[in-house]
Amino acid sequence: MTSETRTGPRHVAIIMDGNGRWAQKRGRPRLLGHRAGARRVREIVASCPDLGVDYVTIFAFSTENWKRTQAEVSGLMSLFRRYIESEAQTLLQQGTRVRFIGDRLRLDAKLRGLMDMIEALTAHNTRCHLTIALNYGGRDEVARATKRLARDVASGALDPEDITDETLPRYLDTHVLPDPDLVIRTSGEARISNFLLWQSAYSEYEFVDTLWPDFTREIFEDVLSRYGSRERRFGGVKV
């Protein structure tokens, strides 16, 4: 699909909401819902190349999620480790490149090592680009980027007079990625929850009632098809 004929989004970002409620509706522990959500990630990511999606970014764990119970946080961290260990070879063979965004410093050493491993393992893949936002918050990302920018100004590497709205993105976690064309949030909630605040300034949004573990490829295709009917003007007016 060329840029001239493309009607679907090149980069889709997903707020994968509803795992805990999915489990609770079934009278099961919340962590069971997170495991079901991880299986859904596998299906959706695998479908992206066939659907014309080159980049997919998923919101796995926010900087605010540390407020959850210790049991749930520990279970999620264990799930992230198992996901990387179990999916690494499959993602490599599928041609998927994996990246992580967010502040890694609070994550445990084993998880950070696995993150480094799968990033290196898949570094040459180009068929699909999967970015996992882990211990990520949009405000935190902008604050960290601003610190890096300020250090460059202080060292003389950057002239303050040269700073424009194109400067800060070079310091963001996502500096190697295109901005998302479409942001999807599942579970019926209609808020962006501190996700890709700078990058999604002109993204289209879809708020879907379906809980994430029930978000099938068919639903994904339907959302993508609706995107194709939208007119994106980026603040301009069609003449």
Rank of each mutant, 00 (worst) to 15 (best):
S3M: 09
E4A: 08
P9A: 14
P9T: 11
R10A: 12
H11E: 14
V12Q: 14
I15F: 03
M16Y: 01
D17W: 00
N19Y: 00
N19I: 01
G20C: 04
G20A: 11
R21L: 02
K25H: 09
K25N: 13
R26A: 07
R28L: 10
P29M: 03
P29G: 07
R30M: 02
G33W: 00
R39Y: 01
R40H: 01
V41G: 07
R42F: 00
E43H: 10
E43A: 08
C48K: 05
C48A: 12
P49W: 03
P49E: 08
L51C: 07
G52M: 02
D54P: 11
D54E: 15
Y55C: 06
Y55D: 14
T57S: 14
A60K: 03
F61E: 07
F61W: 01
T63N: 15
N65K: 06
K67Y: 08
V73E: 06
V73S: 12
G75D: 06
G75K: 03
M77E: 05
M77L: 13
R81A: 11
I84L: 15
Q89Y: 01
Q89W: 05
L91A: 05
Q93R: 14
Q94H: 09
G95H: 06
T96M: 06
R97D: 04
R99G: 09
F100Q: 08
I101E: 11
G102L: 08
D103G: 07
R104N: 05
R104C: 04
R112K: 11
G113D: 15
G113Q: 09
D116L: 03
A120I: 01
A120C: 03
L121T: 14
L121H: 10
T122M: 02
T122P: 04
A123F: 03
N125F: 00
N125T: 12
N125C: 12
N125L: 09
T126N: 15
R127C: 04
C128P: 10
C128T: 15
L134P: 01
N135Y: 03
N135D: 14
N135A: 08
G137V: 04
G137I: 04
R139T: 09
D140W: 06
V142C: 13
A143W: 00
A143Q: 14
T146M: 14
K147S: 14
K147Y: 03
A154W: 00
G156Q: 03
P160A: 04
E161S: 15
E161I: 02
D165Q: 13
E166V: 07
T167Q: 13
R170W: 04
T174K: 02
L177Q: 15
P178M: 05
D179H: 12
P180S: 09
D181S: 12
D181A: 11
V183K: 06
V183W: 02
I184E: 07
R185E: 05
T186D: 07
G188D: 08
G188T: 05
I192C: 06
L196A: 10
L197W: 03
L197E: 10
Q199M: 06
E204F: 00
E206N: 05
D209R: 12
D209H: 04
L211I: 05
L211D: 13
P213F: 01
F220N: 10
E221R: 12
V223E: 13
V223W: 04
R226H: 04
Y227R: 07
Y227G: 09
G228R: 12
G228S: 14
S229E: 15
R230C: 02
E231H: 09
R232D: 14
R233K: 15
R233G: 07
F234R: 09
G235N: 12
V237M: 11
K238L: 10
V239S: 12
V239D: 15
V239M: 09
